[in-house]
Simulated scan of single mutants.
Amino acid sequence: MINWLYKNWAKLCVLIAIILTIFIIVFIKTEDTVLFLIWIQIPVYLLHQFEEHARNGFKNYINKKVFRVQEGDFPLNDKTIFWINIPIIWILMPTFAFLSSIDMMFGLWIPYFAVLNSLSHVIFSIRNWEYNPGLIVSLILGIPVGAYALIVFYSNITVPMIISILSIFFALLLHIIIFGYIRMNYKKQDKAQIDSI
């Protein structure tokens, strides 16, 4: 069962995004624009995950184009991709979105995370002058919806400077952890291959 999930979880993202969007429209009042925009980041990110991982495009792109590994399934494989994405997007984001109904400040990092991640795809695309899996949703939804959420957030709520700094720091920290985890896998596998020679 778990191996099936490792290979197929991303294919479920569109269906889950649709169901979650309906749930958000029904249960989160659209009049509460800030809370609505925090929650809506999650289905947008699910669509982003579908573009990245449903056809193994992101895995192959990172392994072959970024780390130049032509043989073998590293530093990214189905298992590592699953454990990078599920805790952050499927657990952490909904938890903090729920906490935002108690105090909106809990959710400020979510649109920051979405914008930062989307911008990384755009920057990578410009630098390499090519498509990378995740770019289309980043351009069409990730950056516009995330940036709009931040604009509305700051327009309607007085946010203490420390909360803004912590939110940006947390969004950056998650990206650093992800990149560090991928790089650690690369070095570990690379060392294992050298030791086996």
Rank of each mutant, 00 (worst) to 15 (best):
L119E: 02
L20P: 00
N56M: 06
G180E: 06
I126L: 14
K29L: 10
S118H: 04
Y154P: 01
V152K: 12
T158F: 07
T80S: 13
E31T: 14
H53T: 01
V26F: 05
K64G: 15
N3Y: 15
F98P: 02
L76N: 07
N128R: 14
K64W: 01
G57E: 08
M93S: 06
V69C: 00
V145P: 03
Q193E: 10
A149P: 06
I151H: 06
Q41G: 09
Y186M: 06
S138A: 15
D195R: 13
I40V: 14
L37D: 00
W39N: 08
H53L: 05
V14E: 01
D195G: 01
M1G: 12
I182N: 04
I91K: 04
D190V: 02
N85P: 02
L150H: 09
N56C: 03
I177V: 15
R183H: 11
M104E: 08
A54V: 00
V137N: 15
T158Q: 10
H175Q: 13
M93N: 07
I143P: 12
I89Q: 08
W129E: 07
F50H: 14
Q70Y: 11
F67R: 01
I136L: 14
I165A: 09
L99K: 10
I151D: 09
I28C: 08
N63P: 01
I136C: 04
F82S: 06
I194M: 10
G142K: 12
N60H: 09
I62F: 02
N156E: 13
I136V: 14
L46F: 15
V66S: 02
I16K: 06
K79I: 04
F50A: 12
L37E: 00
S120G: 02
I86H: 14
F58W: 15
Y45N: 14
I81Y: 00
D78F: 00
G146A: 07
L135N: 03
I89N: 13
M104A: 10
F23C: 09
V69I: 15
I28T: 11
I25Y: 13
A149L: 03
W90R: 03
Y131I: 11
A149V: 04
N63M: 07
M104T: 13
K11N: 14
I110Q: 09
M161N: 09
W9A: 08
K7E: 15
I126T: 02
V69W: 02
Y148Q: 08
L166T: 00
K29Q: 09
G146V: 03
A149F: 06
I24T: 08
W83P: 00
W90V: 11
G142L: 05
N185H: 07
E71V: 12
F169G: 13
L119P: 04
L20D: 03
N3M: 09
F23P: 03
P87F: 12
I126F: 10
L174Y: 03
S120H: 07
K29G: 14
I2G: 04
F36D: 11
V26N: 05
V44N: 04
S155R: 09
D190Q: 13
E71T: 09
A10R: 07
I162G: 04
K11V: 04
A97R: 06
Y131N: 08
L76C: 07
T80L: 15
M161I: 11
F98E: 02
L116A: 12
D78S: 13
I84Q: 10
A171L: 03
T30D: 01
